[in-house]
Amino acid sequence: MRLVSTYLIGLIFGVGISISGMANPAKVLNFFDIAGIWDPSLVFVMGGAVVVAFLGYKIVLRRPAPVLDAKFHLPDNPRIDARLLGGSALFGVGWGIAGFCPGGALPALGTGQIDVFVFVAALIAGIFAAKGLMALTHARAARVLRPET
């Protein structure tokens, strides 16, 4: 039940991404090319998605808990720090180079096009690289704090 409904939610997302144009790098790059051949379509994707999610969340979050889980898992970190902004800035540079974002590329895997697999492989490598780097800096910080160990 839980897995079937979650699969169907993924399917709705995947169909939405496919229809919207977010899975199409040509369209994404043209959206950001305001100085060139601007295609404003993606304003409607984000607008539609945010409005529906805003209204839907308002109703859903009135419940004490979700239907199939004990509690809501909402991020509660309020900090706007260098890590958030630096990471987001870097994400944007990558998105501007390749034209795929993770939410656009994952459903696009279903088309079987080789370039999507290349992008997702590089994306996964980047995630592992960042996690490794985080673990390394974390371990170093711990050593500085407790030099006797």
Partner: peptide, 11 residues
């Protein structure tokens, strides 16, 4: 691009 996106979204 994919590699930079991976690092960026993780941080």
């Amino acid at each position: 691009g994919g590699f930079l996106v991976g690092i960026g979204v993780t941080y």
